[in-house]
Design a protein around this nucleic acid. Structure first.
Lengths: 214, 214
DNA sequence: CGCCTTATTAAGCGCTTGATCAATCCTGTT
DNA sequence: AACAGGATTGATCAAGCGCTTAATAAGGCG
């Protein structure tokens, strides 16, 4: 009554309704959609709704993940991984390049990576939930990015006021807050985040009397 | 077997097990505990667990709030209310006082109000949930605090670089991020937040060439 | 004290949840 | 074409959910 029901299920238009994927591919498909899903509705999103978005049965999810927590863990890892590039520490400490340029390069790349709705929201959800990956990430960020950044600032500071770790966190927080406003609170984004980042960096450097070409 | 079970239920120690409160008092008690509860576990916290914390039946909650959403709305209002003092706008624009002092006074008071776990977390939960109160609060903050603050900065700025709304948001975000680190991510707090606030403000003012006594 | 109002409870309804598992039916191989 | 393997499904479970309601008992008042 309702249209040509092509029972063969392979569906002539194999674009969307395809079934029976190779396990690795399906698993990845599930995680990908789960990232979007949980980022949107929170970690209490229901497995049945996620399955519906995937066009798949809810029970299938449990063939790939023993429990919902396992799936969430996979979401965490998928979204946290690669968010801190391993070559940033050395680039941030390369004193052949002016500190301002290093900071601009870093925060320009970093913001492009993190000012993304899925990441921002899952990071916040996992932070609120007290996920260990969240703590480890922040500790890593502090150890591997911000603390070296403090050393670099100290090495160039020309004022009597000495930079502290809190100053670096303030720089970092002011920048990250752009993404929070945009993706957590859904406020309008600044036209050019890089410009705002540049101003935040200049404000920071100027406070310690560091010139543009130091 | 188990101790003197004082069946009269008024409980000699009337500290905790008391029953039959006047409705207004019980309602307030419920909201107070709900704030702590939802701040801790999130808005998907279960009414049965909240009731257990109150030492009360779950069904009692629904005598005071028709639905769980109503209770959450009461939590929102309880926690949002009074968070933006109405006399701040005029104090922030009182040009008889140096801008630095005005900023310090404001952010010192404001941070004392908002650097509190229950508020921080409920604000974040409600923001992620897209609650309208959250949007209204942020719009109000922008209109009534930050925009005037931009005007005050403009009036005193001595540099060729003109302050923008984004600069004010950056100042604000850097400060608020202290509370986010502490209460959302549960990182250790700075010893004296007021000192960090002062540095953030000085950094901001100095960027626009505003002196301490302007 | 005994009554009467009503704050509170106990029981449970209908539905949804995460999770299970035997039964399907694609799909590559022969 | 027939088969075998395994990805996928549909039916289902027990637990837990928000919420309802009739019964219970606390406590101020005469």
């Amino acid at each position: 009554m309702d249209g040509p029901t092509d029972k063969t299920a392979s569906e002539s238009d194999c674009g969307t309704i395809r079934r029976r994927l190779p396990p690795a591919e399906r698993r990845q498909q599930i995680v990908d959609e789960a990232v979007r899903f949980f980022a949107e509705v929170g970690l209490d999103g229901k497995t049945r709704e996620l399955a519906k978005r995937l066009g798949v049965t809810q029970s299938l999810l449990f063939n790939y993940f023993a429990t919902k927590d396992d799936l969430i863990e996979a979401v965490y890892e998928k979204v946290y991984i690669g968010r801190l590039s391993p070559d940033w520490p050395e680039r941030l400490t390369d004193r052949n390049v002016p500190l301002r340029d290093r900071l601009m390069a870093f925060y320009s790349e970093y913001s492009a990576l993190i000012f993304e709705r899925d990441w921002m929201r899952i990071f916040m959800f996992s932070g609120l939930a007290g996920a260990s990956l969240n703590h480890r990430y922040l500790k890593h960020l502090g150890d591997v990015i911000l603390r070296p950044l403090l050393s670099e600032t100290e090495a160039l500071a020309r004022t009597d006021v000495r930079p502290t770790m809190e100053d670096v966190w303030n720089l970092h927080g002011g920048i990250v807050y752009i993404g929070i406003r945009q993706h957590i609170y859904r406020m309008p984004a600044p036209e050019s985040p890089d410009d705002e980042i540049a101003r935040a960096i200049d404000k920071y450097l100027q406070f310690f009397g560091i010139e543009r070409d130091d």
